[in-house]
Design a protein around this nucleic acid. Structure first.
Lengths: 202, 202
DNA sequence: CGAAGGTTTGAATATGCTCAACTAATGTGG
DNA sequence: CCACATTAGTTGAGCATATTCAAACCTTCG
């Protein structure tokens, strides 16, 4: 199943009939409030799954950040697969643990980090290797997500993300390309320090 | 394995040799920053597990909120159990999905809710049924966690949690007992409305 | 009773948000 | 290919929410 940038794949609250595995591209998972506020609760890259909930309804929506493809399983089909290939279940469990850890890491960021620490942490996660694999530049990393998506992931506003990136660039820790999706990490140690999570500081 | 209130069960960063299942009591999972800031990334009640990570080290610490007991499995022992009882793995996968959903719910709270919405959401989750099962009062719910723990779960300060509870009480949505761990929901509809997550408002 | 821990309340402050203007990049039709 | 519209991103000023620091309060426990 192919999708285009911005395309909605699943909608929060609808019957959870399918389960997806990303084969190419990047997908964002998000939850929203009636007032229109959005929180991105995770990104899914090739090899990662989404769309399974413990209940009968999806607990988050999924939208494509880049164009790409996903593999779609029906719920029943998946259960069948699991019965025939028990190692698949082990693999799924392992990936689920990984996603849980990532989600807890995000909770730490959201709850206890300053804007600068959040943005620095985000860049440590996504600012090095290009998620977009068909673009290969040595020094410059291509962030597939927009400023709005970074903001919705970090629990900030677009303006604060923009200001913080500018500030990190002014401090020569990173450089921002003319096309704003391109970012270069100039001083990795300083970036790690700016996250507030590295051990050797304080 | 028994534990007392406040007792540390596992420590973030140490080798992940064991896996735990809560049999009684309540446990908090937390991550911390070098600067001393704490974020609680989940609570674990009877029947729920913790302590498994995708890597070799624990990614969060665990501390007892109440006295209680946990069942401890060695990593190898668990792998054995899984091989002999495949349904156990299915059950574990299911619970893992549930924890992931809860963590994503928390991300929404942390990233996009106001202090009042956070506290109201917290009370919707934990303010009705007493987690402490040996205390049974009809109207009053007993919150096992302190103001500090609520604050560390919601990404707020103790003062803000306290002020917000006082405010909700002033609005006659809840009542706070003289023993501050006791809370009564007076107006459930108003509480739901105060979360900002209910559909019929806006 | 006095000490200790947890909680509440108050006043001033700071961090990030809102609103608004401006700039840069992208796309469209003539 | 250029003028113009459109969208995404940046920058600025003032403001609001939650924090910090400080003091008071209340329960519990020795």
């Amino acid at each position: 199943m192919e999708f285009q940038r911005g395309q909605t794949i699943i909608v929060e609250g609808e019957p959870a009939n399918s389960f997806f595995n990303v084969t190419s591209g990047v997908v964002k998972l998000l939850r929203s409030l009636p007032s229109g506020r959005i929180q991105i609760v995770g990104f899914r890259q090739p090899g990662e799954f989404f769309g399974i909930a413990e209940g009968e309804k999806y607990t988050s929506s999924a939208e494509a950040i880049t164009c790409g493809t996903v593999c779609r399983f029906s719920r029943a089909g998946l259960e069948n697969e699991l019965r025939t290939y028990p190692e698949l279940q082990t693999r799924l469990l392992f990936m689920s643990f990984k996603q849980l850890t990532a989600s807890q890491e995000q909770a730490l960021m959201l709850g206890r980090m300053t804007a600068r620490e959040k943005v620095a942490s985000f860049l440590m996660l996504y600012g090095y290797r290009s998620l977009h694999d068909h673009i290969k530049q040595k020094q410059w990393a291509m962030l597939p997500m927009s400023r709005a998506e970074i903001a919705d992931f970090l629990g900030l506003t677009i303006e604060t993300v923009s200001r913080t990136l500018t500030s990190l660039a002014r401090d020569e820790i990173i450089a921002v390309g003319r096309k704003s999706h391109f970012i270069q990490v100039i001083d990795p140690a300083a970036l790690a320090h700016a996250t507030g999570s590295s051990r050797q500081d304080v």
